[in-house]
């Protein structure tokens, strides 16, 4: 649910990075944080375990610039990917405007990816959202590793509806901004269509 503030002349949108444990959601945000000008970002908050697994969420506020005199601000969140944090994932999805599904390309993570997309669909549906109607993009991460599934295979499994998708190596930043821009664009396009109620 975007928030249009006529007084501050700004529009705020919420983006959520979803995906199985260790797929690289937090790494995406860290890279974005590192590569963004200080004036365009706020502090990045990570509520994590001692072993740096996301416990509740990561949060990164970004300003992307102005459209027609309105500042566009995006609040980026990641969910905790580990299966047993499902209650927290549901909370983070509240009020979401756009979703990035971050898949782990490694063959041994195939099942985890599938479970996680299914979980995303279920958790959205529980709140009355449909994944098919929401601004949504897919990222195939960890393309640098040797034991990865082909993009075609991943596409068939994870992206049957052919939403925009990107290959990525979040650790070095490959594909990270392409993914972000794509989802941000879809969110703004949705607003343009008149998401006003």
């Amino acid at each position: 649910m975007s928030f249009i503030n006529y007084m501050a002349r700004e529009i705020n949108c919420k983006l959520v990075y979803y995906g199985p444990g260790l797929c690289g959601k937090t790494t995406n945000l860290q890279y974005i944080y590192e590569r963004t000008n200080p004036e365009a970002k706020g502090k990045m908050i990570s509520l994590a375990t001692e072993t740096e697994r996301t416990l509740f969420f990561d949060f990164l506020p970004l300003s992307l610039g102005e459209i027609r005199g309105f500042k566009t601000r995006f609040h980026l969140y990641t969910v905790p990917g580990q299966v047993f944090y499902d209650a927290s994932r549901k909370l983070i999805l509240k009020g979401v405007d756009g979703v990035v599904f971050c898949a782990d390309s490694q063959i041994e993570r195939t099942e985890a990816n599938l479970e996680s997309v299914e979980n995303l669909r279920t958790n959205l549906a529980e709140q009355g959202y449909s994944l098919d109607k929401l601004p949504y993009v897919v990222q195939y991460n960890k393309r640098d590793l040797p034991n990865v599934a082909s993009v075609e295979e991943l596409r068939q499994m994870i992206n049957p509806t052919s939403v925009p998708d990107f290959e990525a190596v979040a650790r070095t930043g490959v594909g990270v901004f392409d993914t972000l821009k794509a989802v941000a664009k879809l969110v703004l396009t949705e607003l343009k269509k008149g998401g006003n109620g």
């Binding site: 249009i4 343009k192 109620g197």
Partner: peptide, 22 residues
């Protein structure tokens, strides 16, 4: 907000506006 006619300022933006942002 729920009144009809409370238009979003974004109804008028173009694809170009969005592209320019990036």
């Amino acid at each position: 907000v729920q009144e009809p006619g409370a238009d979003s300022p974004f109804a008028e933006i173009t694809d170009e506006d969005i592209d320019n942002l990036f």
